[in-house]
Nucleic acid binder design. Sequence first.
DNA 1: GCCAACGTTGGC
DNA 2: GCCAACGTTGGC
Length: 158
Amino acid sequence: MSTQYWLMKSEPDECSIDDLEAAPGQTVPWFGVRNYQARNFMLKEMRVGDGVLFYHSSCPVPGVAGLAEVASAPYPDASQFDPASPYHDPKSPRDKPRWSLVDVRFKRKTRLLPLKEMREAPELASMVLLKPGSRLSITPVTPEEWAAVKHRLAHPPT
DNA sequence: GCCAACGTTGGC
DNA sequence: GCCAACGTTGGC
């Protein structure tokens, strides 16, 4: 199977690209996803080595802040069973966990590619992230979109 | 802090 | 299985 690509949103207050770089093994478990569509991407479609656009959300300048990769097969998200966690899900059966995650490994920081610039870029108009009303925290990225983002990262507007 | 969009819940 | 109420996301 050929390489797939994803965009994954993270609040920099929770886990920024710098936090990912500083993490043990430069890898973090992508815990806390509580949306079935986003979960299914991790559970059913991601493969180790898939490319990830690391996106900062809910912050002063939202946008792509770095590149990462899928670093594990899916496994159950431990936070669903932790009563102290904000991600605790009392309805998730121990023997049949509702929520799974993958590990994500740091590749490199990039310049910040702001959401505003992405919206203004015709070659990125097809991205799921930019669809009106889109709120998914994990979205697929086509090879063409991946290439266009990398090109734009390397060639900032003047 | 506002609010539009969207997902989930639960009564019926 | 419908759908109104409610909660969440996330840009602005």
